[in-house]
Each structure stands twice: as structure tokens, then as C-alpha cells.
Simulated assay, not measured.
Amino acid sequence: MDALFSSFTAVAIAEIGDKTQLLSLFLAARFRNKTAIISGILVATLLNHAASAWLGVWISQFIPTTWGPWLLGGSFIAVGLWLLIPDKDDSEDNAVLKYGAFVASCVLFFLAEIGDKTQVATVILAATFDNAIWMVIWGTTLGMLAANVPVVFAGSWLLQKISLDWARRTACIVFMVLGIFTILM
């Protein structure tokens, strides 16, 4: 259960102000079928995070178990600092958009997640919780959905009400505290 909760929390917080949230906003503005967008996000995240988690489990065989709390805590701190660097929406009118909301969401989300902080977090979480890989995959996927589904449905309204700079700073502080807590416990 720790793997599920840690994975969910890490990704849900790391997604605040992330480029995939901007991509969600773009897709919601472009397509009316919100269910197809969310389904595309789900499939892309499951595929990307499953591959990342399995990579993390493979890497974990080379890392001494005593390093686990340090790696996880350090990664939380690193992701917290990374959150202070705003992402840009680098989605452009793309040829994949002509295939509809589901395909566009699935392909663009999968590509946007490559090398993203949530993918890196998934690798590290899976390396830390290598005996609970499915909990990590489900936790990170649910965290991704928790952060992006509201944007799909209410993104424009949310952007008017919440400052992304404030949200990033708050998320950074939460990650720093989680990192320190993980290292000390």
C-alpha cells in the first residue's frame, strides 16, 4: 500500500503545471470528446509508466537496498526543485490530430512523458518498491489521471482561479518535505 500511495502522491503533485497538463488543456480545447481524451491519457500513461517501472525494477538489482530511502528521498527533493522550472506547451498542430481525440491523446501523451519528471519518478519508485511493481504502475497512472482529468474538464476555469507559479512553489515545498521525511524515516 505504501507503493501505491507514494506513487500516486508523487505523480499527482509532480504533474502540477507540467507540460502534460498543458497538453491536456490543448487537447480539451481541440476536441469535444472528453472521454476519448481521458482514455488516451490512460492508455499512454499505462504503457509509458509500465515500461518505466520495469526499467526501475531492472535497475534496482544493481543498487544496494540501504540506498533505497536516500534515492527515493533524493528523487523527491530533485523533482521538487525541478517543479520550479515551468514547462512549456510544445504541442503543435500535429499530423496525429487528424486521427481523433483518442489517438491524438494517446500518442501525444506517450511522447510527452518520455524523459518527463513523472517518468523519472516512476523509474525511481519502481526501483525502490521493486516487490510492488503493479502498485507503482497503478499509483503513478492514477496520479496522472488525478492531475489531468480536472484539466480536461475545467482547465480554462482552473487557469483563471489558480496561479501556476503558486501551485509549483507549493508542490516544490511538499516534495522537499516528503524527501526529507523519506530520508529520515
Rank of each mutant, 00 (worst) to 15 (best):
M1K: 05
A3N: 00
V11L: 14
A14P: 01
I16M: 15
K19G: 05
T20R: 10
L23N: 06
F26R: 12
L27E: 11
A29Y: 03
A29C: 09
A29F: 04
N33E: 15
A36R: 03
S39M: 12
L42P: 09
A44N: 14
A44I: 08
A44Y: 07
L46W: 05
L46S: 14
L47S: 14
H49P: 03
A51D: 01
A51C: 12
S52K: 06
L55M: 11
G56I: 03
W58V: 08
I59Q: 12
Q61I: 04
I63C: 10
W67N: 08
G68H: 01
G73V: 02
G73Q: 08
G74M: 03
S75G: 01
S75H: 09
I77Q: 12
I77S: 10
A78W: 07
D87H: 07
K88V: 02
K88Y: 05
E92Q: 14
N94L: 11
N94V: 06
N94D: 15
A95N: 02
V96Y: 04
V96N: 04
L97Y: 12
L97D: 11
A101E: 01
A101P: 00
F102T: 05
V103G: 01
V103H: 07
V107W: 09
V107M: 10
A112H: 02
E113A: 10
G115F: 10
D116P: 05
K117F: 09
K117N: 11
T122V: 02
L125V: 09
N131G: 13
I133K: 06
I137Y: 03
I137D: 03
I137C: 04
W138S: 10
T140W: 06
L142M: 10
L142D: 02
M144K: 11
L145A: 09
A147W: 06
N148Q: 13
V152I: 13
F153Y: 14
F153L: 13
F153C: 01
F153S: 02
S156F: 10
S163W: 07
L164I: 13
D165W: 01
R168S: 03
T170I: 13
V174E: 07
F175P: 00
M176T: 13
V177E: 06
G179Y: 06
F181L: 08
L184A: 12
L184T: 13
